[in-house]
Write a protein that binds this DNA or RNA. Structure first.
Length: 402
DNA sequence: CTCGGCATCCTAT
DNA sequence: CTAACGATAGGATGCCGAG
């Protein structure tokens, strides 16, 4: 087990690449990757942000996460493409299917990333680097987009390696390469070291991953919790024992959030949004045949501050109206009436067995609600969510370049 | 002292 | 004119109160 061989495969500018490929397949002559372009929300919506950008767009100083309106100011010719998750799911599936041919032990890490455990395959694939090239070239030639492959003795190193130079590259990060390839990098580049952690480390005069690697865990304990201190120390030294997990784990929570175009100031509007959200969350619980004990409302006030208020209920539920009623109660308890820019709803504390149990007391009202929910679910599955609820358009980030 | 519940923070795609 | 800005999820952490 000491000699694992792990690959991490990452699609380069995933959403944009996939859009470009799709358009070329549909007879368009323009390759989005060759002009300033990005995937983002509706430019008319002030709340839409740049999700993935092309390399030419990057040259205009457009960065991931910035408002689309802002990006258009930097480059008026910028082509903004709305996200198409149907397409991304399809592309993702095709991409993962090819990789699956090389090993059964594969973990989907996100829509455009996988870990592959290639341990003990020396006889089949004697040269891992050659194999990685073969995989990435096959994806490029058969599917039309490029990927990076990172190779290491664990997931962390493979992941760090795939993030090195892009696009269309294979990199290794073996134990004897860690000092040369990883230690010179800024701490913030370490997977799991985000903005806040990086800031604290820099205050401790720890600027590079190498400096972090050389810092004792006990020193880190002065600033970080036990888990974080341990993780940071190990990660900086390239230590990671986490296995590549095959089966997808069950969700621990289900949540929806909507950023509104105009601030919400009245309870009526807030309730309306909560109802739509309760319906979405309820539908997803029912689709997964689970129930939730805890309902939480989340809201964001004008000053961008997030607030949450939740409660564990006596009985788990998957019923829209019950979720809604709870949400309204929680909202009443916690919202003081400040203008809200975001309202969200989360169901957690998942009850896996709850779905099986029939209602012992034969509550007719509950049965009615269930039937109503079922009817709505049917409409949704036929015509899509928009037929029942028209919520804000979400835009995911498909890469995280800074 | 430990555990459950809750709010918030942090990180990731 | 400070502050740009989404959705979703998992884990950590700190606090508080109950047993």
């Amino acid at each position: 087990m000491n000699d694992r061989l792990i690959f991490h495969v990452d699609v380069n500018s995933a959403f944009l690449s996939w859009e470009a490929v799709d358009r070329l397949c549909n007879g368009e002559t323009l390759d989005l990757r060759t002009v300033p372009s990005c995937v983002g929300g509706d430019p008319d919506r002030r709340t839409s942000i740049v999700s993935t950008k092309s390399i030419p767009a990057k040259k205009y100083g457009i960065v991931t996460g910035e408002p689309v309106a802002n990006a258009l100011r930097k480059c008026p010719d910028l082509i903004v493409v709305k996200p198409n998750f149907q397409l991304y799911k399809k592309m993702s599936h095709e991409f993962k299917s090819i990789l699956n041919e090389y090993t059964p032990l594969m973990q989907s890490f996100s829509i455009d990333e996988v870990f592959m455990d290639m341990s003990g395959m020396e006889l089949l694939y004697p040269d891992p680097i050659k194999l990685a090239h073969e995989m990435k070239d096959r994806i490029r030639d058969e599917l039309g987009f490029t990927v990076n492959v990172g190779i290491g003795r664990n997931k962390l190193c493979a992941k760090m390696a795939s993030d090195f130079e892009k696009p269309d590259k294979v990199h290794t990060l073996f134990p004897d390469e860690i000092a040369d390839k990883m230690w010179p990098l800024p701490v913030g580049e370490l997977f799991g070291c985000g903005e806040s952690t990086a800031k604290k480390l820099i205050e401790m005069h720890i600027k590079t991953i190498g400096e972090l690697a050389g810092t004792s865990e006990s020193l880190l304990l002065n600033v970080f919790g036990e888990k974080s201190a341990h993780y940071l120390h190990n990660a900086a030294n390239g230590i990671d024992d986490s296995p590549v997990i095959n089966e997808e784990r069950e969700a621990k929570s289900y949540s929806v959030e909507n950023t509104t175009e105009d601030d919400v100031t009245d309870f009526e509007t807030a309730s309306h949004i909560l109802l739509a959200e309760a319906d979405i969350v309820g539908g997803r619980l029912r689709a997964d045949e689970v129930k939730a004990f805890t309902i939480t409302v989340i809201f964001r006030t004008g000053d961008m501050k997030r607030h949450s208020h939740g409660r564990k209920m006596e009985n788990s539920t998957d019923i829209t109206s019950e979720i809604y009623d709870t949400a309204v109660m929680l909202m009443k308890e916690s919202w003081k009436g400040e203008p809200l820019r975001l309202i969200g709803l989360s169901a957690s504390d998942i009850d896996k067995d709850g779905f099986q149990q029939m209602s012992l007391f034969g509550e007719e009202e509950k049965e009615k609600q269930k039937n109503l929910d079922k009817a709505l679910d049917k409409i949704r599955s036929k015509y899509g969510n928009d037929s029942v609820i028209r919520a804000g358009i979400g835009v995911f980030r498909s890469d995280r370049r800074k």
